[in-house]
Design a protein around this nucleic acid. Sequence first.
DNA 1: GGTCCTAACAAACAGTTGTTATAATGCCTG
DNA 2: CAGGCATTATAACAACTGTTTGTTAGGACC
Lengths: 197, 197
Amino acid sequence: MTEKTRAREEGLHRSDNRRQELMAAAAHLFNQRGYDATSMRDIAREAGMLAGSMYYHFSSKEDLIVATYEEGKRLISTAVLEAIDGVEDPWERLTQAAVAHMNTLFGGNNFSILLCADISRTAPTLRSRLIEIRDSYDKLFMDLIEDLPLAEDMDKGLLRLNLLGSLNWSTSWYRPGGQTPAQIGAFFVKVMRDGLS
Amino acid sequence: MTEKTRAREEGLHRSDNRRQELMAAAAHLFNQRGYDATSMRDIAREAGMLAGSMYYHFSSKEDLIVATYEEGKRLISTAVLEAIDGVEDPWERLTQAAVAHMNTLFGGNNFSILLCADISRTAPTLRSRLIEIRDSYDKLFMDLIEDLPLAEDMDKGLLRLNLLGSLNWSTSWYRPGGQTPAQIGAFFVKVMRDGLS
DNA sequence: GGTCCTAACAAACAGTTGTTATAATGCCTG
DNA sequence: CAGGCATTATAACAACTGTTTGTTAGGACC
């Protein structure tokens, strides 16, 4: 009663909970099998409803995909921004960003890791929506690299792709047990800064 | 006549040509849309035959996928081995390998680039077959990095993942017009060697 | 108490999927 | 010319796809 009322006052309906549950189920399956191999029925089953019922919450599979992707961007953006807040040294900022990036990816949240999946093979209409979301996240790293004290002619766009490539590729090989995600992130930045020789 | 005869003597049938054509069509579509979104009918149409007829050449879609993947590994392995042949300096060997890697990926061959697709979301039985193939290619780079003059406690496995991550991730963003694939490959190795500061 | 909104079920839609069995073609050899 | 084999076409299969529709139960609100 009172709970319902409070929820209502905050503009939340019961459907917002179920919506979140659907997104969680979807993100989980998307990570496990990919977008194509995950059917609406699979997602619905994991969330405890039937496929048709999902269309009350999401008007299409594409919209559901975009919603999970956007949630992933929201979570990882927040984490990175918090991590660099107050840090002054440009290299330290990049390091902390990479660490937060990795910690978020492998911290158990099923959403952010979706941002690291290759989307170049998805359907064009979906792809363009996802690209826009990810670009807005990548911009964070672009700014961090822009602030580094580098030679004038250094290709900073290529540097960003260099680092994000290493970091994101980790989603295809990382398994718990060895180096922690934070160590891996810091290591990649350190190698980029200091080199090996 | 004589051509046919010679082909026959070498154990080649007409089907070997068609098999290659099917693999080429498959690789092209796999790159464009991914494995799941590419149907056997799509591949057959591009090769000028009907879906059912493909099963004379490949006993399943999975086998066709594995065949294209393996062909990709064969091509890029050959290119890298040729590139480092005779080169002595360890860093130069790694550089030449990275350059050959990139040149092969973006050199118009539709097979090798398949090796850079994330396969962690494919069906388990297929995945294990693909992993085996790619591992045998990655080993080339493992050896190259093993030969670098590095500190004793340096994690060389992580270095390989660092470099291959950057290189392979390029398949998700590279477009002709800017730096050439060769320049990108050499740049990533140079950054790893010398750092930025 | 009647009305509307929320949320879900149940069933079906038309189209696509990988795959198979069978039949037809066409070329090479004898 | 005949026989056989290599290669393709044809047609169908069961299962699955995203989505739509009609319906229903339960609260909330006037």
